[in-house]
Every structure is written in C-alpha cells, then in structure tokens.
C-alpha cells in the first residue's frame, strides 16, 4: 500500500452569491497516493478545477480539511499557504501562464529563488530541467516567442523547480494540438516515472490514459474511480476509458 500524499476530509466549497444552491465541492473525502499519477475527469462545471485550487491551497474551502504531505492546509493564513506552496506544490495550467516580460529561464528562476539562495546551484538545476524537457535551447527566449507546447513544457519546468511533493495540472493539453499534447504528456510521464506525484484534471481521453488512477467527478463528489489496465496512450486503453466514462454519464 502506497503512502498517502494528499487527503481531504468533509471538504466543502460553495461560492457566496452563486445562483446554485448546491456546493461546488460537496463534503468530499478522498486521498491521493505518493508517486501516483491521478487523473480527475468530469463534465464541465462539475468542480474539478475548484478541487485542484483547494488542494493546492490557492483557494480556501468553506469547510472541511486538507493535508498535503501531512501538512494541514486548512485554517492557514495566506502567508502560510504561500510558504507551503513554494515547498510542496507545483502547478501547471491550461495556458502556460508564463510571466510575459521574463525569459523562459527567468520564469523558472523566479519560482526557484523563492526557495533556494544558491544562485549557481539554482542555475544548474534550471538548465537540467530545461534539458530534460527538451527546451534548453529556448532558455533565453521570451514567452511570446514560444509555441504552445514549448511554453507548456516551460511551465512544467517552473512547477518542478522546487521539487514539489505534488504537481497539480489543470487541463495541461487543453490549448494544444495533438502533437504538442503528446509531447507534454510524455514529459509528464517522464516526470512521473521518476516518482513525482501528479494530480491532473483533463477532458482529453488520450491524456487521461497516462493516469494510474482515474477519478470521475460529478456534483462536487467523486462518484467512481478506475485503475489503468493497459498501456499509456494506447487506443485500447482510450476505448476502455471512454466506455467507462459513458457509463458514468460523461
């Protein structure tokens, strides 16, 4: 049995002033395992992204508890959450969300310099990551000069710079073509293969097949889960996943 890296207890999130009476996250008890690549799927508006924001400490729950690596995220001040994010969390968005006035390398260094004081080590680490993700030659380019896939890989390097406990990825291939998506997912797979825990929200079946475990999310609750049976990214696995999702009302 793998150790749990992330867990929630009676997690609830509702938005004040929202027309809907039901909470977006509704009394959720769940957990994620260390070194596991977990994929969350569900219909639009089901609360997947909100869950990701709550888990990563970017948003505050209405009630309930969250632990990352045994660190209680709930009832923390903004400052404590920020300090926790530096050490324990990496985030990859649908858009790469790189700071437009910083180079690729600087975008990664900014996150790194929040934690590491050793400039030489940090620069070395950035170069390693860029090399691993195949974008080292682009280190001094500005975000506006990158393709979508390249920008997304840069965002991944930024998420990894502080060796986080878990990486949250919110639709990382949502804005990419299939070729770029494949490269990004291969990168995520490489990262995962080195033991990195990943929690990813996606609508894309192909991307979802890279997950070890797929959670289906509906009305603020995880209604079912499925373990990957076949090869990552293979057509048979994609087909099986599609069938399973259809059964759940996807």
């Amino acid at each position: 049995m793998k150790p749990q890296i992330l867990k929630t207890s009676a997690l609830t999130k509702s938005f004040p002033g929202s027309n809907s009476a039901a909470p977006v996250i509704n009394n959720l008890d769940t957990h994620f395992f260390k070194g596991e690549f977990t994929v969350i799927m569900g219909n639009s508006g089901s609360g997947k992204s909100t869950l990701l924001y709550l888990l990563s400490g970017l948003d505050k729950a209405t009630s309930g508890k969250i632990w990352i690596d045994d660190f209680p995220v709930h009832n923390r001040t903004e400052k404590e959450l920020a300090l926790m994010r530096r050490q324990k969390v990496g985030f990859v968005f649908q858009d790469s969300n790189l700071v437009p006035n910083l180079t690729v390398k600087e975008n990664i260094l900014v996150a790194g310099r929040l934690v590491s004081k050793n400039s030489n080590q940090l620069n070395k680490r950035v170069d390693e990551l860029l090399n691993d993700l195949g974008i080292l030659p682009l280190a001094n380019r500005m975000p506006g000069q990158l393709s979508g896939g390249e920008a997304q890989r840069c965002a991944m390097a930024r998420a990894l710079i502080n060796d986080p406990v878990v990486i949250f990825a919110d639709e990382p291939t949502g804005s990419l073509n299939s070729e770029a998506s494949l490269k990004v997912m291969d990168c995520l797979d490489t990262i995962h293969s080195k033991g990195q825990s990943i929690v990813m929200v996606t609508h894309d079946l192909k991307s979802a097949t890279y997950g070890d475990r797929i959670l289906f999310f509906r009305d603020g609750q995880i209604v079912d889960e499925r373990l990957r049976l076949g090869e990552r990214g293979c057509a048979a696995e994609e087909e099986a996943l599609f069938t399973w999702l259809k059964q759940k009302g996807w």
Binding site: A82, M84, R85, F91, N97, V99, N162
Partner: peptide
C-alpha cells in the same frame, strides 16, 4: 493581475 496570479501560485506571499 495575471502575473501576480502566477507569482501567487508559485508561492509569493501577499506581502511580497
């Protein structure tokens, strides 16, 4: 605001 959102995600404190 977008850059600040990114910084916040990366672990910048509100004071920073």
């Amino acid at each position: 605001r977008k850059s600040f959102g990114i910084f916040k995600t990366a672990g910048f404190t509100p004071r920073q």
